[in-house]
Simulated assay, not measured.
Amino acid sequence: MSTVSISKAAQKTSLALPILVGGGVAGLLDMTSAYISFGRYMPIGIAGGLVGAAGRHLSVDQYILGLCIHYFIAFSAATVYCLASKKLGFLRDHFFVCGLFYGIGFFLFMQLVVLPLSAYHAMGPYQYHALVQGLLAHMFLIGLPISVSLRMLSR
């Protein structure tokens, strides 16, 4: 009976594919939700968070900048979750619950850190409907796709 030894490099799981798929799917689902909720000019609003009042002018450059920022944030969220799963194995094992809670944490980070630091300086008052919609969207359209992609593509 012979055994096949697997090299150390082959034993390590690559996180590139889960990050790309999870970030891409989360970005696509979130942007689709934003288009439905806020209209087709939502990327211009995202760009305005970086460039300020200049972002209120309709232009192709602002639109593309908004899409790039949106996907940068989505891929960053996927990267953080996947890298954290290297040390915290339960993120991969209990992907459904962890993905939902990651979506909640991501929503809170965006609302309480990113938006107040943006050029719009967005802060409350928060409406109940918008709060519930934002939480559910981030749980199911961002956190869950990222955690599912990690679970499915890293084993």
Score class of each variant (00 low, 15 high):
residue 101 F to A: 13
residue 108 L to Y: 08
residue 91 L to R: 04
residue 68 C to G: 12
residue 89 G to S: 14
residue 113 V to P: 04
residue 67 L to A: 08
residue 103 G to T: 11
residue 96 F to I: 15
residue 36 I to N: 00
residue 97 V to D: 03
residue 114 V to N: 08
residue 98 C to R: 03
residue 34 A to V: 12
residue 84 A to Q: 07
residue 51 V to I: 15
residue 46 I to A: 02
residue 69 I to V: 15
residue 57 H to D: 12
residue 51 V to Q: 07
residue 36 I to L: 12
residue 106 F to C: 01
residue 44 I to G: 00
residue 95 F to W: 15
residue 90 F to L: 12
residue 31 M to S: 13
residue 66 G to V: 07
residue 72 F to R: 03
residue 89 G to E: 07
residue 88 L to Y: 13
residue 41 Y to M: 11
residue 38 F to M: 12
residue 46 I to W: 04
residue 35 Y to G: 09
residue 105 G to F: 10
residue 75 F to V: 13
residue 77 A to T: 12
residue 32 T to L: 15
residue 78 A to N: 07
residue 70 H to F: 03
residue 100 L to Y: 05
residue 95 F to L: 08
residue 87 K to W: 11
residue 115 L to E: 09
residue 65 L to S: 11
residue 74 A to C: 14
residue 90 F to C: 00
residue 64 I to Y: 02
residue 70 H to E: 05
residue 43 P to Q: 01
residue 57 H to P: 00
residue 77 A to P: 03
residue 61 D to T: 13
residue 60 V to Y: 02
residue 53 A to F: 10
residue 95 F to I: 01
residue 92 R to W: 07
residue 82 C to R: 05
residue 95 F to K: 07
residue 66 G to L: 04
residue 82 C to G: 03
residue 91 L to S: 01
residue 94 H to W: 03
residue 97 V to G: 13
residue 98 C to Y: 00
residue 104 I to G: 08
residue 79 T to D: 06
residue 114 V to S: 09
residue 51 V to R: 05
residue 62 Q to G: 14
residue 95 F to V: 10
residue 69 I to M: 13
residue 50 L to E: 02
residue 33 S to F: 14
residue 111 Q to T: 09
residue 68 C to M: 13
residue 112 L to V: 06
residue 31 M to G: 11
residue 78 A to I: 12
residue 36 I to V: 14
residue 73 I to C: 11
residue 36 I to W: 04
residue 43 P to K: 00
residue 104 I to Y: 01
residue 32 T to K: 06
residue 107 F to Q: 06
residue 31 M to C: 12
residue 53 A to W: 03
residue 91 L to I: 07
residue 60 V to A: 13
residue 101 F to T: 12
residue 69 I to H: 02
residue 64 I to M: 09
residue 60 V to T: 12
residue 32 T to A: 15
residue 109 F to P: 00
residue 62 Q to S: 12
residue 32 T to P: 02
residue 88 L to I: 15
residue 60 V to F: 09
residue 32 T to D: 02
residue 41 Y to G: 14
residue 55 G to D: 07
residue 63 Y to A: 11
residue 41 Y to E: 09
residue 35 Y to V: 07
residue 86 K to Q: 14
residue 74 A to M: 15
residue 45 G to Y: 11
residue 110 M to E: 00
residue 46 I to E: 06
residue 57 H to V: 14
residue 68 C to V: 15
residue 73 I to Y: 08
residue 62 Q to I: 09
residue 45 G to H: 08
residue 105 G to D: 02
